[in-house]
Design a protein around this nucleic acid. Structure first.
Length: 452
RNA sequence: GCCCCGUUCGUCUAGCGGCCUAGGACGCCGGCUUCUCAUGCCGGUAGCACGGGUUCAAAUCCCGUACGGGGUGCCA
């Protein structure tokens, strides 16, 4: 049996990390087994689906290096789902219902329940028309069960399932039908998705049987990715857009690698390695059941590690969108030192802004810590004097500044750094310093001296 | 309310009855290297939710409790 898996996002928003993780695990499994990875856009809800988001999702998947072998859109296949619903109707497996949503709710409240359809129209022989939906007739007894690769045996009682809507009053089929039909039609062997979808399984399985299937796909419900409050990541309250991570200077390989450690881990404890090695080891059965916290700190560690591992050419290419106005030649000269200090690519500007443009105002606490030390005024005076006629090279500047420190028995590098760069941490000082015009450097030192 | 599920260091995980006085990673703390910071290297910190069983032996199996989460749409 050849494995066929699918990632089926609804284009109601940008790809978020939860979706990316589902896509990743499906992709991993397909690549591990030599199977087929399918991208299926579940856009049956025309009102909420936005076409431009489909492209965004495709772009984000590509960015992550997740390539798919087949692609479908459910909006192209409405007629198939309609045919399926019609056949249910003909065979008495479904019926028309003209109850308004308010009426359904009112009756539920009268029964003392919070919601749920009561089967009111089962025998009423309602005819199609305005405001009429199609409902699937669920069995009154029995159970629906499956052995989830991750969660083990799960079962639901049919009696608890209400007769759910399969075709909207607009005539458009609901996702359950589309989902069940397509999984069967496309020969999906393994359904790998988030745990938030477990309770749709009974409906989908019932539909699948009605469609004539005698088998079921293998299900694997992934643990959710949660925020610091241990709630499912949400687009509204959490920072989860994959595109945003790209824009902030996360490397796709780092993101992909990090996502892989959420709910799954390599047996040998080596967490950062090539995707090929991960693919070799990957098994659905090894995935955890417990939700995992999306830890940005650890993601940043992965990202920094991946940035450092880039060769010169790759780093130069990756940094292009984040470089700002720094000249290529200077950037190249400083690249190894920059690369070593980055957690995110968008931190490049913080490291180099003072070389190309004005230095930022020093932080008050930093100023206090550095400039109020005894001897600092003398150091600055001596450095200013020395810079008037020293050679303007990294070596000469280093000799001058450190020499002053030795002569006066004081810290000299830090005050000069703060005066010239506006910060107390950053790139090695003298190389970039030599790239700035002499009068500008002296000017900054004088300004700092005057503030003391 | 009802249905489903989860619980190993602060966080992500290894562990699938003896190899566990519980291993790794992030974070945090300390040290060394160093023009600052960072890197690198060395060291430290901290955990099997709780209570009962089963067993010669339980983090690992069973039951219960507690806590947490997901779902409960003419969204997916």
């Amino acid at each position: 049996m050849t494995v066929r898996v699918r990632f089926s996002p609804a284009p109601t928003g940008y790809l978020h990390v939860g979706g990316a993780r589902s896509a990743l695990f499906n992709w991993m499994y397909a690549r591990h087994t030599g199977g087929t990875f399918i991208l299926r856009i579940e856009d049956t809800d025309a009102e909420r689906s936005q076409p431009h988001l489909i492209d965004a999702i495709r772009d984000n998947l590509q960015w992550l290096g997740l390539d798919w072998d087949e692609e479908y859109r459910q909006s192209d296949r409405f007629h198939l789902y309609r045919q399926a619903a019609d056949s249910f109707l003909e065979r008495g497996l479904a019926y028309y219902c003209d109850c308004s949503q308010d009426a359904v709710k009112a009756r539920a409240e009268a029964r003392g329940e919070s919601g749920g359809y009561d089967g009111f129209c089962r025998e009423r022989d309602v005819q199609p028309g305005d405001g009429v939906v199609v409902r699937f007739r669920t069995p009154d007894e029995g159970i629906v069960a499956w052995d989830d690769v991750i969660r083990g045996h799960v079962e639901f009682e049919n009696s608890l399932l209400e007769d759910f809507v399969i075709v909207r009053s607009s005539g458009v089929p609901m996702f359950h039908v589309a989902n069940a039909f397509d999984d069967l039609d496309m020969g999906i062997t393994h359904v790998v998705r988030g745990e938030d979808l477990v309770n749709t399984v009974p409906r989908v399985l019932l539909l699948r049987r009605a469609l004539g299937a005698t088998d079921q796909p293998v299900f694997a419900h992934l643990p959710l990715i949660v925020n610091e409050k241990r709630q499912k990541l949400s687009k509204r309250r959490d920072d989860v857009s994959v595109g945003d991570y790209a824009a902030r200077g996360f490397l796709p390989e780092a993101m992909r690698n990090y996502l892989l450690t959420l709910g799954w881990g390599p047996k040998d404890d080596i967490e950062i390695r090539s995707i090929g090695e991960f693919i070799e080891q990957f098994e659905l059965a090894d995935i955890n059941k417990a939700p995992a916290f999306f830890d940005i700190k650890k993601l940043e560690h992965f990202n920094a590690t991946y940035i450092r591992a880039l060769d010169a050419e790759a780093f130069a290419a990756a940094s292009v969108p984040f470089r700002g106005s720094i000249p290529d030649k200077l950037f190249t000269a400083l690249a190894p030192e920059i690369q070593n200090r980055l957690v995110r690519l968008n931190e490049i500007s913080v490291l180099v802004d003072w070389i190309v443009g004005d230095a930022p105002e020093p932080d008050a606490a930093d100023w206090q810590k550095v400039m109020t030390k005894p001897g600092v005024a003398d150091v600055l005076d001596a450095v200013i004097a020395g810079m008037a006629d020293c050679a303007w090279t990294p070596d000469a500047l280093e000799a001058l500044v450190l020499g002053v420190g030795t002569d006066l028995n004081a810290k000299s590098q830090l005050p000069v750094r703060l005066a010239v760069t506006g910060r107390r941490a950053g790139l090695p000082l003298f190389e970039p310093l030599a790239a700035i015009d002499r009068p500008i450097v002296i000017g900054r030192l004088r300004a700092a001296r005057a503030r003391m």
